[in-house]
């Protein structure tokens, strides 16, 4: 009987693709208002932006979906927290992606 809520939670998470995106700020004293939508967030893996920038935080997403969906989730999380681009895109594990969030100066 008590297992029902647990089974329901696990099943819900599985159906949702177990998506789990997080943002942590570089500086706890600073907060940024969103200036771009998710689709406007630029992504850099091996290159660095030509413009000057400030690193404002880090994002990570762990989800069972497609790689492209996970990148979209990172961009969404970055946009929500005032980011304008992602740099240093990495794959810390098979189901996770992470990157640094920046704002242009």
């Amino acid at each position: 009987m008590t297992l029902k809520p647990l089974i329901f939670t696990i099943a819900s998470a599985a159906l949702a693709g177990c998506a789990h995106a997080e943002f942590a700020s570089s500086n706890t004293q600073e907060k940024f208002t969103p200036s771009r939508t998710a689709v406007q967030i630029e992504v850099f893996k091996s290159q660095m932006p030509a413009k000057k920038y400030k690193e404002i935080g880090s994002v990570v997403v762990c989800a069972g979906g497609k790689l492209s969906s996970n990148v979209e989730l990172l961009k969404k999380k970055a946009a929500e927290n005032g980011g304008e681009a992602l740099i240093g895109l990495e794959q810390p594990s098979q189901n996770c992606l992470s990157a640094a969030v920046i704002r242009y100066q």
């Binding site: 570089s26 500086n27 706890t28 004293q29 690193e55 240093g88 640094a100 920046i102």
Partner: peptide, 10 residues
């Protein structure tokens, strides 16, 4: 702790 700044790439 709240004054410690964390950077990945900077």
């Amino acid at each position: 702790a709240e004054d410690v700044v964390i950077y990945r790439k900077t």
